[in-house]
Amino acid sequence: MQTLDVRTIAPRERHPLIFATFDALGSGEAFLLVNDHDPKPLYYQFSAERQGQFSWEYLEQGPETWRVRVGKSAPAT
């Protein structure tokens, strides 16, 4: 699983990079997002822009590091 550590990336560049990484995933694949704060606003953005297309699983929840497994859902058959 690919790891995307955005802690050293400028905040304005984070969401576009995260969405590009997600869009490049194949169906059923996932990446590990590493962040320096709770990415809850990103979750809401995913819910609005990729509704039904993603999974979101916290693996670590701070206080200094958050790790979230973001997956691309398989299409419904």
Score class of each variant (00 low, 15 high):
I18G: 07
I18Y: 02
I18K: 08
I18V: 10
F19D: 00
F19E: 08
A20I: 03
A20K: 12
A20N: 06
T21F: 01
T21N: 12
T21L: 05
F22Y: 08
F22G: 07
D23G: 02
D23S: 09
D23C: 10
D23H: 02
D23A: 14
A24F: 00
L25V: 03
G26L: 13
G26N: 12
G26D: 11
S27A: 15
S27R: 06
S27I: 00
S27G: 10
G28F: 11
G28S: 07
E29M: 08
E29C: 10
A30Q: 10
A30P: 00
A30V: 02
A30M: 06
F31Q: 10
F31H: 05
L32F: 00
L32H: 05
L32C: 15
L32V: 10
L32A: 14
L33G: 04
L33A: 09
L33S: 05
L33M: 09
V34W: 07
V34N: 09
N35P: 06
N35Y: 02
N35A: 15
N35W: 00
N35Q: 05
N35T: 09
D36W: 00
D36L: 14
D38Q: 05
D38E: 12
D38R: 01
D38C: 15
D38V: 09
P39I: 08
P39V: 07
P39Q: 05
K40F: 09
K40T: 04
K40M: 12
P41R: 08
P41C: 11
L42D: 05
L42H: 04
L42P: 00
L42Q: 05
L42F: 11
L42N: 02
Y43V: 03
Y43P: 04
Y43T: 03
Y43M: 13
Y43W: 12
Y44I: 06
Y44M: 14
Y44C: 13
Y44H: 12
Q45I: 13
F46Q: 07
S47D: 13
S47A: 15
S47T: 01
S47Q: 15
S47E: 14
S47Y: 04
A48W: 00
A48R: 07
A48Q: 08
A48I: 04
A48Y: 00
